[in-house]
């Protein structure tokens, strides 16, 4: 026991020595914290299954599920050097899993433009190859008849329709697919989110905010009465989701601890 204590002390001393030696130029990891709000009001687990939001078109709605994929977090500095781990993260808002993500890459401290891809771009959207995504949520896959690959987002809940009935909706974002043509028409509807410039130092954490209300607005005011289900095979709906997505994400707090 005494030996272990001694060892622990020595190890701590050794580690702190290391830190002192080289703190300014050693490449560092960067943490990302994903937070979610509806026009500024934070969305927590307890907010799910409560009809409490009103979208731009005027429908009252709840969330029951909000799971989405981001990939290719990229750091670009003024010299044009690009750092991209090429990995991905599946955020589950209700279950509060993967809200924190550290891309598997280290970047030298400095100023960077930070961006990521919502969903998978075509290069990454390869059918069935990611075992963790095949195993997540009963299979995060998109059926082959819609071109295969993976979901970008599953947002589900209930809304009050124009007959005052409570109806389920499934706002699922995928690569746009029109299966009525031969061959199938596919359009990459993933999009790049640019968070702007961030100063990266040791222990930088970047908050990425999703304003869920924006999925229903700007440029397309979303009418759930018409577009609440069977949106995966709806090519135009997918393009609209992608366009609405442009204003969904923003940079929140950047902290250096």
């Amino acid at each position: 026991m005494k030996k272990i204590a001694l060892f622990a002390m020595i190890a701590m001393v050794a580690m702190s020595c290391n830190n002192d030696d080289d703190n300014s130029s050693t490449p560092v990891n960067v943490d990302f914290l994903f937070t979610h709000n509806w026009d500024g009001s934070a969305i927590e687990n307890s907010d799910f299954e409560v009809i409490q939001y009103t979208n731009a078109h005027g429908e009252e709605l709840s969330l029951s599920k909000l799971v989405y994929l981001i990939s290719d977090i990229t750091f670009t500095n003024a010299n044009g050097d690009v750092y991209d781990a090429g990995d991905y993260n599946l955020v589950n808002v209700r279950e509060e899993t993967n809200l924190m993500f550290t891309p598997n890459i280290q970047v030298p401290p400095g100023d960077y433009t930070v961006s990521f891809t919502f969903g998978f771009d075509d290069e990454d959207n390869i059918d069935g190859v990611y075992q963790d995504l095949n195993s997540a949520d009963g299979g995060w896959n998109v059926p082959m008849m819609l071109g295969g690959g993976y979901h970008y987002m599953r947002m589900e809940g209930k809304f009050i329709d124009n007959t005052a009935a409570e109806v389920g909706y499934a706002y699922h974002a995928i690569r746009a697919a029109d299966a009525s043509t031969t061959p199938i028409t596919l359009q990459d509807t993933s999009f790049e989110v640019n968070l702007g410039t961030v100063t990266i130092a040791n222990n930088t954490e970047i908050e990425v905010k999703m304003n869920v209300a924006e999925w229903y607005d700007n440029p397309h005011e979303w009418d759930l009465n018409i577009l609440h289900t069977v949106l995966m095979p709806n090519f135009d709906a997918q393009v609209m989701m992608s366009e609405n997505g442009a204003t969904v994400f923003s940079k929140g707090a950047v902290t250096q601890n």
């Binding site: 059918d127 069935g128 095949n134 195993s135 009963g138 299979g139 059926p143 499934a170």
Partner: peptide, 11 residues
């Protein structure tokens, strides 16, 4: 398939 798997998620 949104609850019961798919050919890539063969459980």
């Amino acid at each position: 398939f949104h609850c019961h798997g798919n050919p890539n998620s063969p459980l």
